[in-house]
Design a protein around this nucleic acid. Structure first.
Lengths: 366, 366
DNA sequence: CGCTTACCGGTAAGCGCTTACCGATGTTCC
DNA sequence: GGAACATCGGTAAGCGCTTACCGGTAAGCG
């Protein structure tokens, strides 16, 4: 990859030892708080370390310890042509990554991030390379086939997100099903909306498919008219959401009373397109999201959505991975609860309580 | 930190050599494409590697090569209590990080991410730890004092973002000055707004201070009334922006004709608060942002803002760092141009061209 | 006061890899 | 057919660190 060899004549533990007038073993012991060095020895070492601004080399430590204290996170990135649109949809990934990062820090681990282009054919190679640099891997949605996972998992422990566990890997996901169920019920039963549509996410996303499935089942059960199909195919991005609405309107189609979007980003795009055409949300058409990204509450109108505990998702993923790294433990599958967050885009008045079973609905506090 | 020693009985290059019936030197040569191994040897090695799913250990390579092929990125994170609010403001950081990541991948590097709490007293320690695990560091805004930077830079090359270069470190930033200048001119000269306010970011941010300074100078020069001061102190977050507006309104103060926000997030919060009170943007009060985060165009109304080339900022930062890692090169300071993006929140009609010098203004294309 | 016991701290091996160096083949030319 | 040469592949050293092991010194005891 890169040419440079042998960095500069870097400081080593030997330099510190020489300067402090002790052996390298003592330096190491002081640095790691092992053994019971004499106060004087400790002092000398500490002083030498400070004077030299010495920092032990991570790879040498890792090699010696058999532990790198680094975990890897791999996720998808748009290819060049889609870049502008795609990267919007990453808020979501970023928040999860932040959760991973925060939790791993508590354990003294750092996080190695690597994105993979959507059109990259040999993801496996990239993931494997990451495996060599880390103690364990967290893979976002749709990274690898079961076979690929098995291969990588034979090298380091693997946790997948929003997938399903395999014999070799663990998985952490949110309970999309009940979130979608509650959401649809809120629209159809509480608001009596007779027609609803699902503005979908990427067709190849399991999360999206699960949501679509529940949407249809639940809306049908509640007796609402359903609009789905190719015309309602988005891609999780705001631009994708806007395009769907615009095309539909241009084609002279009548919109349903409520539009359930596959993600908040999609909803943002959809609301934008509606506003451009002078269609009022929620008076003319109600719109809902999914995820509850941070900006959702600041939209106009504030977005009704299903909150996924994204930070927690990331934190849990790390936790599971960690317990596997440090022992053999680790639950194979973890499912986190989601929460319906009712704001105004569904037609609820600002800060009122809808007529439905209490406790099952989230509400803004601050 | 973590207890586990000696991971499992991992695969090594010796296992591969044995299996392939060659020496470890040959395996290494094949793996790295060095020397001129016979076709047969090469084949045997490749097969053994595949059969065993062997991946060479990154730390051992790093130790031997003197190159980890990892760079570190350090940024600030809100402390626990502020978490909810703070992390909104991170869109910005995330986009930059994405730029860093994409560029480093092109060179075969991976990125180690580490956030530091706002209230963390010894950042230096954390940063130093990162230095030990990487070949170079990129530090976001306000991470370290000049002294701290000097210390860290004695260990690995350092690039700072939105700061200023020191004898030991390099810096990459955006040209805030001219962006703010153009923006204020647009509001005061083109729109003839007679009173303007600067809803500021964190008081300790150099970027924020630079923007505030230019704002005042430029608005004063153009003859507009200026509102600044503690009442207008935000913190880069949406919640902070909303709070300022709410407090002002509660105190019965009259708002200026235009509000220049320190960041898009701040503007989002401000517009949200204004909408809550029934104040129309831009008819009653114009609002502008700074950054051009992806959602800015989808807000209601679409946000007029100054686009910072955030991806590019990150990419450039890596580039500079890389050239320092692989050689002694690297420009000490890089300043990237920004671009005024005129949308509707400033009072411009949708997609019209304002009456000002052409070429100096950006405009939405798609 | 001499011997046992405890406590420190040093020496050296080894983590998994790269690569300089060298010996063993096979090739070519006279 | 033998010597000179090229080519390939193996052996071993070393990257910077941790730590098992052991020897030396000081303290504790009879």
């Amino acid at each position: 990859m890169a040419e440079p060899k042998k960095a500069k004549g870097n400081l080593t533990i030997y330099d510190v030892a020489t300067r402090a007038g002790v052996s390298i073993a003592s330096v190491s012991r002081v640095l790691n708080g092992l053994g019971t060095p004499r106060a004087e020895t400790r002092e000398k070492v500490i002083r030498a370390v400070r004077e030299l601004s010495f920092v032990p080399d991570g790879s040498a430590r890792a090699l010696s310890n058999g532990l790198k204290e680094v975990i890897g996170v791999v996720f998808r990135r748009g290819d060049e042509t889609l870049f502008e649109d795609e990267y919007e949809s990453f808020l979501y990934i970023d928040v999860i990554n932040r959760g991973i990062e925060a939790e791993s820090q508590r354990r003294g681990f750092d996080v190695l991030m690597s994105s993979v282009a959507f059109n990259d054919e040999n993801v496996l190679q990239r993931v494997a390379a990451m495996a060599g640099k880390t103690d364990g891997l967290i893979l976002h949605d749709r990274m690898l086939s079961a076979v690929g996972i098995a291969r990588v998992a034979s090298i380091v422990p693997v946790v997948t997100l929003a997938g399903s566990p395999t014999p070799e890997s663990m998985n952490v996901r949110c309970d999309n099903e009940s979130g979608m169920r509650e959401l649809v019920r809120h629209l159809v039963v509480d608001h009596h909306y007779g027609s609803v549509a699902y503005l979908s996410g990427r067709g190849d996303s399991p999360d999206n498919r699960a949501r679509a499935r529940i949407f249809e089942a639940e809306a049908a059960a509640a007796g609402a008219d359903i609009q789905v199909g190719p015309a309602w195919q988005g891609n999780y991005s705001a631009a994708g959401g806007a395009k769907v609405i615009t095309s539909l309107l241009d084609a002279g189609k009548a919109l349903p009373r409520a539009i359930v979007c596959a993600s908040d980003q999609t909803a943002i795009g959809a609301m934008h397109a509606l506003a451009q055409r002078g269609i009022r949300v929620p008076q003319d058409v109600a719109v809902t999201g999914f995820d509850d990204v941070p900006v959702a509450r600041h939209l106009h109108p504030p977005l009704t959505t299903v909150r996924q505990p994204m930070q927690e998702l990331g934190a849990k993923a790390f936790e599971v991975l960690y317990s596997r790294i440090s022992a053999a433990g680790g639950e194979p599958e973890i499912v986190l609860p989601v929460q319906l967050i009712v704001r105004e885009s569904c037609g609820c008045p600002r800060s009122s309580v809808p007529a439905t079973s209490p406790g099952s609905l989230g509400r803004e506090e601050g």
